[in-house]
Design a protein around this nucleic acid. Structure first.
Lengths: 158, 158
DNA sequence: AGTTGACTTAGAGTGGACTCCAGTTGCTAC
DNA sequence: GTAGCAACTGGAGTCCACTCTAAGTCAACT
């Protein structure tokens, strides 16, 4: 398979594929007589694995460690397994954090924002959510108060 | 609360807190007579919310959108709700991806790496995992084979 | 023979999210 | 009163993971 096909198949740009190869995340891909990459089934399997891990947030660094061990052969199996287990732990932790955030988001949507109608006007006032609302109210007070209105430099240099 | 306390409480560096304020993610924090930040309860609630969202991977851009609407008052409730719902969607999607990755990792650990003993030697050979193994084997063949390494630039002019 | 378009390379540039730095001010302790 | 330390400011630097550019090669088509 040529780079464009692989790119489509895995939804990774050709640049990204070349980048992965360059940093050693993918093995050196074979070239044909005119120097064009020809991805084998095995290369694709590797890409599939890497893509899966990356999309879950596994760092390139960890993946590199893993594939580096791979190249060293069977004697590194235990170390490789350890890496996978470590990454599994990390993923597990992240998922727990995300679940907590989901709960919070759900609470906010279902409780705090429940009285919002379709066309964007609010139907009732609410008064039991601290978080940003209170801070925002305070901010409004501050802004309305003394001239103290710091220049609002948004989004650094552009 | 002074910045150092807040920093400890939420495990965010003072730099990060100042950064968040600078870009408008946090409201302008009140200062005492000598210009030192004094974080209110409301500020802390906002920080707590932001930290929670950030640690789940919600982008600063989205959070900024949200707090910007907040400053515009009640008429933006519907829009704010929409943002939260969108972020909930994104989180949900991410979690699904992560779950799939977890499954894959679990499979690999439990099947592919099951015959690794404590001290790092492998006990048995395995032969039914494509992925990187095959690619690695291929790579080893390539390395052992022809000269490989040299780029074939014949007429090179830099 | 010339043009198109996919490919090649090394290397530079980008965007997001911090993180650090230099210089200054202000509080507390000795 | 001066040393030490925490805080302040604007701006520069860093890290990660790409992403883009320039200059070139090659096969196919007109």
């Amino acid at each position: 398979m040529k780079i464009q096909e692989v790119s489509k198949k895995f939804e990774l740009t050709a640049d990204t594929l070349r980048y992965y190869e360059r940093i050693g995340l993918l093995p050196h891909i074979g070239r044909n007589e005119s120097g064009i990459r020809e991805y084998s089934e095995e290369d694709c399997a590797a890409i599939d694995f890497i893509k899966c891990m990356r999309s879950a947030g596994v760092s390139i660094e960890s993946l590199l460690e893993y594939v580096t061990l791979f190249k060293e052969g069977d004697k590194t199996r235990a170390a490789r397994k350890a890496i996978l287990m470590e990454e599994r732990e990390k993923l597990q932790d992240k998922m727990e954090i995300m679940e907590a955030t989901m709960d919070r988001l759900n609470w906010k949507i279902e409780n705090y924002y429940k009285w919002v109608d379709d066309n964007g006007a609010e139907l009732k006032k609410q008064h039991n959510c601290a978080e940003l609302e209170a801070a925002a109210r305070q901010e409004q007070k501050r802004a309305a108060g003394p001239k103290k209105r710091a220049p609002k430099k948004t989004t650094s240099s552009k």
